[in-house]
Computed example of a mutant assay.
Amino acid sequence: MKNILNEDLIYEILSVVSEIPEGKTATYGQIARLIGREKNARLVGRVLSMSEYYGSYPCHRVVNHAGRLAPGWMEQRELLESEDVSMKDENHVDLRLCQWDA
């Protein structure tokens, strides 16, 4: 399978992520749609998992389609709560109240 990750695509994804305002969240699928790759939500997640190699981005503001936080990333909840993001429960943000309208 051809590797579809290239630096232009990586920076395109990270550029959109950098636009998510403080106190708002976006979904992986939403980011994929915004870059014209609506079926590539997993690709977005893959890029975000290695974003630290490309600079500092607010990846903590990206959640899955149900608002679930990234498994194993304990700091994500703390970072979101410090921005007053509403939580539905321990592992989910309330997308009705805090989803980025992009």
Rank of each mutant, 00 (worst) to 15 (best):
Q99V: 03
D84A: 13
L43T: 15
G36V: 08
I35R: 02
V93E: 00
R96H: 06
K2D: 12
Y28A: 12
V63A: 01
A41S: 04
G45M: 00
Y54K: 02
Q99F: 03
N40P: 00
A32E: 09
L69W: 01
R61G: 10
P21F: 14
E78A: 13
L69R: 04
K24E: 10
L97H: 14
S51A: 15
S49M: 10
I10L: 01
G72T: 00
R37D: 03
G55A: 11
E75M: 13
V17F: 05
L5Q: 10
R61F: 06
E38H: 07
R61I: 08
D94V: 00
E78I: 07
Y57S: 00
E83M: 01
H60K: 08
N40T: 04
Y53K: 09
R68E: 11
L43K: 09
V17K: 07
M74E: 14
A70G: 06
A41M: 01
M50K: 12
S86H: 08
G72R: 00
G23H: 02
I20K: 04
S86C: 09
A41R: 02
L79E: 08
N40I: 04
N6G: 14
L34W: 02
M74H: 14
E7K: 11
L95D: 10
E38M: 10
D94M: 00
G67C: 05
W100I: 01
Y53T: 08
E19T: 07
R37Q: 07
K24A: 12
Y28G: 04
V93N: 02
R96S: 06
W73R: 13
N64S: 11
P71M: 01
L5V: 10
L97K: 15
G36W: 07
A26I: 07
E52G: 08
G45P: 00
V93K: 01
E12W: 02
I35M: 05
K2Y: 12
Q30V: 07
V47K: 04
H65C: 09
I10K: 01
D94R: 00
S18D: 05
V62R: 03
W100K: 01
Y57E: 01
I13W: 08
E78P: 04
R68K: 06
G36F: 06
S15F: 12
L9A: 07
L9E: 09
T27V: 02
S18G: 04
E12F: 04
L97D: 15
E7S: 12
V63D: 00
R68C: 06
K24T: 09
